[in-house]
């Protein structure tokens, strides 16, 4: 297990290095200027500004410098926010994004799995149709529509919850619900399909024949096996939720990372683009590792290394 983990960590670092390098060169190809008032700058000023940010150097030199600083943990300084270290900016903004993503993930996957299981157990009943309906609606309504409706009816019309901002738990409820719809839909649909599959397999028939109780069959035998594909699918969904949702963050005015990432690309804020890409990738590879470890927990037949010694 230890050796396996070490190997995995090595590949993770290698992956991150490749992603960082690739992003760096791709980013230099994006057209556009990082200077917001470029139409007012004289050629002399342009040169001075480029020199300030090191953009007057050849790209390989810029790359070497960036990687050198990165090794020291220095992500550079944002172009659009003067004086702001990218590291601080990212980790400060990651907090709200991660909290929101985590809450939405927990709410969405728990409810989704629950709905999926019930639907499978009561296949072709009104419960099944109801849960499928919720899943389809959840998958097909764009989150900005759902978030906008929530905001208007619950926030403005009923006044039950604050309309905007991120200042305490009650502020997180509406964005969490809005964001949870997506993992809920995915979890419910996958869970139902997998569960039905498992319920039709031979060992379930055997269990039934042996007289195992309904709940024993559903939870002890079926649920665990059906969960494996669901976990695979939910892993990456989890990362994308944790790293922030552009739309939800914008609508509820949450100081998160998702909106910032997109803005930094459109503004050619190179250090922020690099920083967030590296952070996202790191989270992705980490989650993939965690998902792999979870397989073993859910299904003892899957072993990470050569089995017990």
């Amino acid at each position: 297990m230890g050796k396996y983990l070490l190997q995995r960590v090595f590949y993770m670092v290698l992956t991150l290095f490749l992603i960082a390098s690739l992003t760096f060169f791709l980013m230099k190809v994006i057209p556009g200027t990082p200077f917001a008032s470029q139409n007012k700058l004289s050629p002399a000023q342009m040169e001075i500004m480029k020199a300030k940010y090191g953009l007057d150097q050849p790209v390989p030199v810029q790359y070497a410098k960036y990687m050198g600083n990165l090794l020291k943990g220095d992500f550079g300084t944002s172009f659009q926010f003067s004086n702001r270290a990218v590291g601080d900016l990212m980790f400060q903004r990651l907090g709200p994004s991660a909290q929101l993503g985590f809450q939405a993930m927990v709410l969405g996957s728990v409810l989704g799995i629950f709905l999926g299981v019930i639907a499978a157990l009561r296949q072709n009943s009104w419960i099944d149709y109801g849960s499928t309906f919720i899943a389809v609606v959840g998958k097909s309504i764009p989150s900005f529509v759902f978030a906008g409706l929530l905001q208007y009816y619950i926030g403005v019309k009923l006044g039950w919850l604050p309309v905007l901002f991120w200042k305490g738990f009650e502020y997180t409820i509406m964005p969490t619900i809005a964001l949870a719809l997506f993992p809920l839909a995915i979890a419910a649909r996958f869970m139902r399909t997998e569960m039905i599959d498992v319920l039709n397999s031979d060992y379930i028939t055997l269990a039934k024949a042996k007289g195992a109780s309904f709940f024993d069959i559903a939870f002890k035998h079926a649920l665990r096996n059906a969960l494996i594909p669901v976990v695979t699918v939910l892993g990456p969904v989890f990362v994308s939720l944790m790293t922030g949702s552009l739309v939800i963050e914008k609508i509820f005015a949450i100081p998160g990372l998702g909106e910032q990432f997109v803005t930094s690309i459109t503004l050619n804020d190179y250090p922020v683009i690099m920083g967030t890409t590296i952070l996202y990738s790191a989270m992705f590879v980490l989650i993939i590792l965690i998902v792999d470890i979870l397989y073993g927990v859910i299904d003892p037949r899957i072993r990470l290394s050569g089995g017990k010694k």
Partner: peptide, 26 residues
Amino acid sequence: KYSLLLILTLVFSLILTACGGNNDAS
């Protein structure tokens, strides 16, 4: 078997409360 669901629900609500605790001050 019910307890599995019960525990999930409990854990879920605990997490939610824990997350919310941080910034109630303002």
